[in-house]
């Protein structure tokens, strides 16, 4: 079987200008930060980023990598708003497709199922549709005749996710309480890269925790601490002090170059 181990730079080397990149995790939880850092160091620009946004979205906005952001929210969890995302929005630096959270999941699911769209109620009556006129509705062909949002497939060129354990072939395991949507991101993407705390020969724990199988993964990056400063329980919780430093430096831009250099290592 194929040995898919590679470095973060090799994984990110597959990303080209203008691609659509999905980033797993949720808010400030189990984000593939080592892969995001590699992306920040790369010369790639003009990305469309699809994410349940946290500091991944903020950092990529800070580095000018984002042309368009597709999200349901952007939050640092313990800090409500990400300052870089706020600035990017308030200065009009990025295009956005702002969705209901459930619509984002449905769009990923449609892409994973190779469907053009899936119906969902979320979005009807709200301003989601006002600000995204490309989103259309569809009417039930059955007697109810209900009108629903036709959530288009969110097809990804690349998915970046971080899990607790993986083997060299791309089987991967989450050990925390929530898988988030990392499997859906991988199923929606052409190229799929998983970083992990540890590459293992065999897995401990219930088989239900094996979220990704090797059909869903093209590259495995061993990256201990690779979600920090976001949480990666049970391996570690969020580094609240470092996240606070990030948010402070993102708010007071005099601090930013120093923080950014230290953060990228």
């Amino acid at each position: 079987m194929r040995d898919k181990r590679m470095t973060a730079d090799e994984a990110v080397g597959e990303i080209e200008d203008g691609m659509t990149v999905g980033i797993g995790g949720w808010g400030s939880r189990r984000k593939p930060m080592t892969l995001v850092k590699a992306l920040l160091r790369s010369g790639v620009t003009g990305l469309t980023v699809v994410t349940y946004g946290g500091p991944d979205a903020g950092l990529l906005c800070a580095a000018g990598k984002v042309r368009k952001l597709v999200y349901g929210f952007v939050s640092l969890d313990s800090i409500p708003y990400d300052p870089w995302f706020k600035r990017a929005r308030e200065t009009g630096a990025i295009e956005v497709l702002e969705l209901d959270e459930g619509m984002l999941q449905t769009g990923l699911r449609a892409a994973g199922h190779r469907l053009p769209f899936l119906p969902i109620r979320a979005g009807l009556g709200s301003d989601v549709l006002t600000y995204a006129p490309e989103l259309k509705t569809v009417r039930s062909p059955y007697d109810d005749g209900e009108e629903l949002v036709a959530m288009p497939a969110l097809e990804l060129d690349v998915a970046l996710v971080h899990l607790n354990r993986a083997d060299r072939h791309g089987n991967a395991q989450y050990l925390g309480p929530d898988p988030y949507f990392d499997d859906l991101f991988c199923l929606a993407a052409d190229k799929r890269y998983v970083s992990c705390e540890q590459v293992v020969e065999t897995f401990d724990g219930p088989p239900q925790t094996l979220l990704l199988n090797r059909m869903m993964v093209d590259g495995v990056v061993e990256a201990p601490g690779g979600a920090g400063f976001t949480s990666c329980v049970p391996d570690y919780g969020r580094d609240e002090a470092l996240q606070r430093e990030y948010a402070d430096a993102a708010t007071d831009l005099e601090q930013w170059p120093d923080f950014y250099e230290r953060f990228l290592g």
Binding site: G72, V74, Y81, E90, D100, G123, S126
Partner: peptide, 26 residues
């Protein structure tokens, strides 16, 4: 809970739509 001002270029960006559209319709 999304933004204050014009959504295209808000004077104050907030969280985003989050789950509010889906919650209220369901």
């Amino acid at each position: 809970i999304s933004a204050i001002g014009d959504h295209a270029r808000p004077t104050r960006q907030l969280l985003g739509f989050r789950g509010a559209p889906g919650n209220t319709i369901n």
